[in-house]
């Protein structure tokens, strides 16, 4: 049997509807919340953590980002809209005069990034920030 393009589209739509084809899955809010709670042992208060990143990323494959939180011993970074929300965790020591770190991350689409900090005194804090990811016109 030779399938035409139209047949294939119809088939794909049908399978998609029937749940037989796995459509791109993104992290659910639950998964993000669970990751935050697992790291912080509860939902932290908002504030006390800074996320510095471009408002609009020219390409989602390489997005420069910096996180900082005064007095933090570790900061976990999540990308709430990626298929898996985890990005990484920075661990600071007494040799770091500032609890600040930068890296470059992958974002699958426009989404919120979340930074959760654990402080030396056991308290926790978090921040959330939207980064728009452009879809590109002609990526080439």
């Amino acid at each position: 049997m030779k399938l035409s393009r139209r047949d294939l589209f119809a088939l794909a739509a049908g399978l998609g509807a029937a749940g037989l084809i796995k459509l791109p899955a993104y992290a659910s809010d639950d998964a993000v919340e669970a990751a935050i709670k697992k790291f912080a042992g509860g939902m932290p208060k908002t504030g006390g953590v800074d996320i510095s990143a471009p408002e609009i990323a020219e390409n989602g494959n390489t997005v420069p980002i910096e996180v900082s939180a005064a007095g933090a011993t570790s900061i976990m970074l999540l990308a709430a809209g990626n298929p898996n929300p985890g990005v990484g965790t920075f661990h600071f020591t007494k040799m770091n005069p500032e609890s600040r770190a930068s890296t470059r991350i992958r974002l699958a689409k426009t989404q919120d990034v979340v930074a959760v900090a654990k402080m030396a005194d056991g308290s926790t804090a978090m921040a959330r920030r939207e980064i728009k990811v452009t879809i590109g016109g002609c990526g080439g």
Binding site: T134, I135, G136, G137, C138, G139
Partner: peptide, 8 residues
Amino acid sequence: NMIRADHL
């Protein structure tokens, strides 16, 4: 000019 989200 922009072509969709890309700056030509």
